[in-house]
Design a protein around this nucleic acid. Structure first.
Length: 493
RNA sequence: GGCUCGUUGGUCAAACGGUUAAGACACUGGCCUCUCACGCCGGUAAUACGGGUUCGAUUCCCGUACGAGUCACCA
């Protein structure tokens, strides 16, 4: 087989896709694809205590939504399966046994209580927690323990001195003293492998050439190497990624996690962010191209991505930046595409039948940064809110209650006789009218906009709103305003 | 606490020994304008600190401070 690049995304099925994990998946994808390689999905579910129903589906669906298509995986198969670790149990045991036979690993019968008691004693210092008790037990005792059926774990014999070093593609030379490493557990008492062990076995068996992961694993990387060495396997390239941090309530920073709010992909989508905006945003957290470009489609990223431009320092996830990306993506889309995206949100606020959603889309597209803002933005279309009469007064537009009433009466007459109700004709009519009355456009438009929206701030101007509402509803609303203003005027005479 | 890693404006970040230290987001002034946006033009704001090396350090080395990660039969 030729020496092609292979990367893998190996999440544990937790039921939600954290954007830190998503970025790791993205970079794994980008690294392999930019080098013409394969991207593999493997589910790491060796922790039975944390089994969550439907969690794998979340992973499949997220990767699908963002376009990270994998070449091999549990649901699509491949030549290196199975791709779910719980289905590979026997494989790990076999390899652990091989190490035992070669005297590189041993059975350990120490129970949790014993390990717990070691923590408080001092004699375990320097061993990383475990005193290696069973490493030095004699063989006959071990055999009888095994026969008795006492539960055990399998631990690797770590070197007692010296150091282990490796080169990370991002962080460079990393050296760790072996005495810092405890005899790591390979197989747990339940017979399943630990994450570290399964990871190494699978990465080797699946021919993974580049191990990409968060740098929380940086200091445990030597453990992996000791395993590769024990088996005599070639050590893959390591690419550790800088962490994405989140801001805590007290202002401090820590590794982004659930408590930082909506940080899962699903949360963000639910909040009205577009998958491609999310991907674009997180792609730039820890990597940037040599030019200053910021907007990237996934395929553009594949073309531009390079490992040597991955940053070493952690970054903080910023909603402001994501908002900007999202707005950029919305504005760049075709109207009919936006119509599909906006419709569910428009329906939340507008149920009247004779409304052209496309007109709404065209009016609000430059004003939407999150899809979830849409209902509040356009709620006045459904029903005219009760509004304060003082909304008609605006200094800059030179409007007051008197001239507003005047303008509305006149506009109503003209609009009533307008045959073709469309943006252009309404616009022409009103602009001509302002010219004729020798007033600012604003002096005319402001009262109309207020009358038909009942709001101080609206997405779009009077013309757009009139167009969306249609002739009848518009005239009704203008009539209502005339009524209110007239009543007020009479009361103050 | 040990070990590992990091530190350029509020945030993302460029500059891999020589620049007036880019750019983007956010903030902000103005223009446009029927409000709000969009768009356009402008502005405030940074090399953590102290030592070296060098003709010259954001850049290389050492120390200090600060921050983070990690020290599980979790992944």
């Amino acid at each position: 087989m030729e020496n092609k690049v292979r990367t893998r995304y190996a999440p544990s099925p937790t039921g939600f896709m954290h954007i830190g994990n998503l970025r790791t998946a993205l970079y794994e994808y980008l690294i392999s694809k930019s080098l013409g390689g394969k991207f593999i999905l493997r589910i790491e579910d060796t922790d039975q205590c944390r089994h969550i129903e439907g969690a794998q589906e979340v992973i499949y669906s997220t990767l699908k939504q963002v376009g990270l298509t994998y070449d091999e995986g549990p649901d699509i198969g491949g030549n290196f399966g199975p791709y779910v670790q719980s289905q590979r149990k026997d494989i790990y045991l076999k390899y652990a046994q091989r190490l035992i036979e070669e005297k590189k690993a041993y059975h350990c019968f120490c129970d949790k209580e014993r390990l717990e008691s070691l923590k408080s004693s001092e004699n375990c210092l320097g061993y990383g927690g475990y005193d290696r008790h069973c490493r030095y037990c004699d063989n006959s005792l071990m055999d009888s323990m095994l026969k008795s059926g006492k539960p055990y774990v399998i631990r690797q014999k770590m070197p007692l001195d010296g150091s282990t070093e490796f080169t990370d593609e991002v962080y460079g030379e990393i050296i760790v003293e072996n005495k810092e490493l405890q005899d790591q557990i390979l197989i747990k008492a339940d017979g399943l492998p630990t994450y570290n062990f399964a990871n190494v076995i699978d990465d080797h068996l699946m021919g993974i050439t580049h191990i990409v992961r968060g740098c929380e694993y940086l200091s445990s990387a030597p453990k992996y190497n000791l395993l590769y060495e024990a088996f005599g396997w070639e050590i893959p390239k390591y690419i550790h990624l800088p962490l994405i941090m989140g801001k805590n309530e007290d202002g401090s920073l820590s590794k982004l996690s659930k408590r930082h709010g909506s940080v899962s992909f699903e949360d963000l989508v639910r909040e009205g962010y577009l998958p491609e905006a999310i991907v674009n945003c997180i792609a730039l957290l820890g990597w940037c191209p040599s030019d200053n470009r910021e907007i990237f489609s996934l395929s553009d990223l594949v073309k531009k991505f390079s490992i040597d431009r991955i940053s070493k320092s952690p970054s903080t996830f910023d909603y402001d930046k994501l908002n900007w990306f999202n707005g950029e993506y919305i504005r760049s889309k075709e109207d009919d595409h936006l119509l599909c995206l906006f419709t569910p949100y428009i329906k939340k606020a507008v149920s009247r039948s004779n409304i052209d959603y496309l007109k709404i889309v065209q009016t609000i597209k430059n004003r939407v940064t999150k899809l979830t803002q849409i209902p509040d933005m356009i709620d006045f279309i459904e029903t005219l809110p009760k509004y304060d009469i003082n909304l008609f007064v605006n200094k800059k537009s030179k409007t007051n209650l008197e001239n507003s009433l005047l303008v509305l009466k006149k506009a109503k007459e003209r609009l009533l006789s307008l045959n073709t109700w469309c943006h252009e004709s309404i616009y022409d009519l009103l602009i001509d009218m302002a010219k004729e009355m020798q007033i600012k456009n604003g002096t005319l438009m402001w009262p109309i906009r207020v009358a038909v929206s009942g709001k101080l701030v609206t997405p779009g101007g009077a013309v757009e709103i009139l167009d969306i509402l249609g002739k009848d509803e518009s005239i009704n609303r203008i009539n209502l305003a005339i009524e209110i203003l007239t009543k007020f005027e009479e009361k103050n005479l």
